[in-house]
Structure formats: structure tokens, C-alpha cells
């Protein structure tokens, strides 16, 4: 069994007790059909950190998140979460062991109501649904008004809020965020990134992909820039802010 068990993901047998698992990626390659997108990615996300992954469109950032969450098989290389290699663990198994991935663009079930979506998020957790709803509506009052509406008819931003609430209510140990701010109003984006910061402080490893450099760097404690399927540079947010300028304007 190469699968990731709940204990290992929880880091109980990890080197640093009490910290969420970190992510270690070595020489990772992945391809869509014949076209290779990741050409040997090396990345180390420290436990409990907020790690921002920057870079231009088409660099392979979303693909990397797909591989980490088990939605795409790597052609070679390794992803280790906590102590155990992810290997061939299925997406649902990873999810159950505390890896929460919010995909880019479509993170809700369109033909289920808002409420039903929330119940599915907590399908496995045995959580109290009232509590789940309360937590969500407190953060996103808009969703409360819409709770009986089919998620597919929500506005773009409302859908994004609903998608993100999964991270809020399932208490994952590792959070993978793809383009959190996409389609969201500035006010909400600001609040959301505050939220991400808080979650991380409470013990969660966050890896986020974001187009808006300064927004991402304002919450991150470490960052990397990815170009053409490789990690180009890696360092503190301040260093990366400068490096990003040159990459984007190149």
C-alpha cells in the first residue's frame, strides 16, 4: 500500500509532531497525452506554511496541483506528503486523508443546491450539517440567501465562494488552491486571503497558485516562480516580488 493514511498525513508519525504535513516534490514529470507539461519539478513546501506558486499562463502550475491531488498521474518523479509518497493513491483516498484541492473555475456540482453541495463536501466527515452551514454562511452571507438554489445558476463569484467553503468546513491538513481570486470582487478576495492566512496559522499547509502576484505574496511566507514546467526561482516573498517583475515583463 503506497496510499497515504490518515495518520501519516496528520504527521503524528512525522518528524515534527503537531505540525501539518509538508509537501516534497522531486524531479516530477507529467504529460497530457504526448505533450509533456512538467519537465522535472523540484519543490519543497514546509509544513504549516503558505506557499505561493507564481508564473505566467501555461507554465504548468495547475497541472502540478492536479498531480499532487491525484487527478493526474506523474510520468516520473515523486510527490511526498508528510512522510509517505503519494504514489498511486486515488483522488478520493487523498481527499479523505486531508488533502483538499479547490480546482480552477469549476468547484461545485451545478445540479445540486447550495445546501446539498455543502452536505457532499462533508460526505465522509460525519460532521454536523447545521454547523457546516453556519460556518459557511457566516463567512459568505450571500450563500445563505441562495441555499436552496441550484449551484449551476449561481453567479460566477457565488460559485467560487461555494467552492472555497469546502476548505473551510472540511478542516483539511493540506490545502491546494488554484486561482482563488478568479471572478471574485476585490473586497471578497481580500477577506479570503485573510482567511487563508488564519487557516494556515491554525495548522494547515497551503499551496496556492495565483495570477495576482502582490495579493498572493501578501499572505505567503514562501514563494516560487514557475516557467515552462520548471521551478525557475524560489525564495522569500520579497525576493520573489522582484523576480516576478522580470519574469512577466520578459
Amino acid at each position: 500500500m503506497t496510499g497515504l493514511t490518515a495518520e501519516s498525513a496528520g504527521g503524528r508519525r512525522g518528524a515534527v509532531a503537531g505540525l501539518p504535513p509538508g509537501i516534497a516534490i522531486t524531479d516530477l514529470r507529467a504529460a497530457y497525452g504526448r505533450i509533456e507539461v512538467l519537465h522535472g519539478v523540484e519543490l519543497l513546501v514546509p509544513p504549516g506554511s503558505v506557499y505561493a506558486l507564481l508564473g505566467p499562463n501555461g507554465a504548468g502550475k495547475s497541472t502540478l496541483l492536479k498531480v499532487i491531488s491525484g487527478r493526474l498521474r506523474a510520468t516520473s518523479g515523486q510527490v511526498v506528503i508528510g512522510e509517505k509518497p503519494v504514489g498511486k493513491a486515488s483522488t478520493e483516498k487523498l481527499a479523505r486523508s486531508g488533502v483538499c484541492a479547490i480546482p480552477e473555475g469549476r468547484g461545485v456540482f451545478p445540479n445540486l443546491t447550495v445546501r446539498e453541495n455543502l452536505r457532499i463536501w462533508t460526505y465522509r466527515g460525519g460532521m454536523d450539517i447545521n454547523e457546516v452551514e453556519d460556518t459557511t454562511y457566516e463567512e459568505f452571507p450571500r450563500l445563505k440567501e441562495r441555499r436552496r438554489q441550484m449551484a449551476g445558476t449561481l453567479s460566477g463569484g457565488e460559485q467560487q465562494m461555494l467552492a472555497i467553503s469546502r476548505a473551510l468546513v472540511t478542516h483539511p491538513k493540506v490545502l491546494l488552491l488554484d486561482e482563488l481570486s478568479m471572478g471574485l470582487a476585490p473586497l471578497i478576495v481580500a477577506e479570503l486571503y485573510d482567511l487563508v492566512g488564519n487557516l494556515a496559522r491554525k495548522g494547515m499547509t497551503v499551496l496556492l497558485v495565483e495570477q495576482f502576484v502582490s495579493t498572493a505574496l501578501s499572505v505567503a511566507n514562501r514563494a516560487a516562480i514557475m516557467v515552462h514546467g520548471r521551478i525557475e526561482q524560489e525564495g522569500s516573498p520579497e525576493e520573489m516580488a522582484e523576480a516576478a517583475l522580470s519574469v512577466y515583463l520578459a
Partner: peptide
């Protein structure tokens, strides 16, 4: 002072690390 605000006077998200 807005979140991620830059110097351009745009209180929204200010892309570009010009701080």
C-alpha cells in the same frame, strides 16, 4: 491601505510587485 493596494490609487488588487 487596502489589501494588496499599490501606489496607483487603485484600492483593489494591485498586480505587479511595485511595492
Amino acid at each position: 491601505e487596502g489589501i494588496g493596494a499599490g501606489t496607483g490609487g487603485s484600492p483593489g488588487i494591485e498586480p505587479g510587485g511595485d511595492r
